[in-house]
Design a binder for these strands. Structure first.
Lengths: 122, 122
DNA sequence: GCAATAGGGGAAAAATTTATCCCTATCTGA
DNA sequence: TCAGATAGGGATAAATTTTTCCCCTATTGC
């Protein structure tokens, strides 16, 4: 595992939430787990652009941060289920706020993002 | 400037907001600009851990995404002021939601984040 | 014996983001 | 005249994150 060389800032609320939510797929993982897609293979199907590996890594981080729990059923073939902790559930409205802003401004966002991408590649 | 090799996902609101808010200092930049700290040197003082360079780069991205505007006064020494656009202002409540969650859970977050950092370095 | 299933993990490479270093310019104040 | 404030940029290095590739577990069914 990669070991940080510089310590993160933990000065304010924004630093703190950033520390647990940063990660390309974490927010989506929380969202889908909340929607009842709890098994690793389901999550992979919901997020096909991420590799299995990264999802595992980010799920582990979410677990370490006590936002989700992992339940391993001792059966064969293995069965694993992730659930939000009570703490993790308190994040759902926050994530909803983010998603709503994105949805409400979809057209404009798509436009400015694509414009910037194009100008970069010139 | 670095040129992306893979296109970002822009499927849902979460993807879209992520695209404009990802960046280590962007949220803080928006926050401080909203609080009236509009000049680059002020912003640097507010965010001493970031280098001048990164702040400039991220400010440029925020500008390209139409969240802020940059006004250059033709004086010497140079004077520059950033302001939120109307679009950018709509993000403030969203950022407040993030910061509030972080503040409300400060102790717990600090604890789980530090625990994870320690276990990493073993 | 072999494939399918369901879940993982290590090592190294690639992608991406941030940081470092050094440079430009002008004016003010000591 | 030199230091410091103001704002900025290019090149390169370092840090960090994500992807790729290949491997492992154990059981069931054929």
């Amino acid at each position: 595992m990669y070991e940080r060389k510089t310590l993160p800032n933990l000065n304010c609320g924004l630093d703190l939430i950033g520390e647990v939510l940063y990660g390309k797929w974490k927010i989506r993982l929380l969202w889908f787990i909340n929607q009842g897609h709890q098994r690793p293979s389901e999550l992979q199907r919901k997020i096909p652009d991420a590799t299995r590996r990264v999802l595992n890594i980010q799920l582990k981080e979410l677990e370490d941060h006590e936002l989700i729990t992992k339940k391993i059923y001792p059966v064969v073939p293995p069965k694993v289920e992730y659930s939000l902790t009570d703490f993790g559930k308190t994040l759902i409205p926050v994530i909803a706020t983010l998603g709503n802003w994105g949805d409400e401004n979809e057209l404009r966002l798509r436009s400015v993002i694509l414009r910037r991408l194009k100008s970069e590649s010139e």
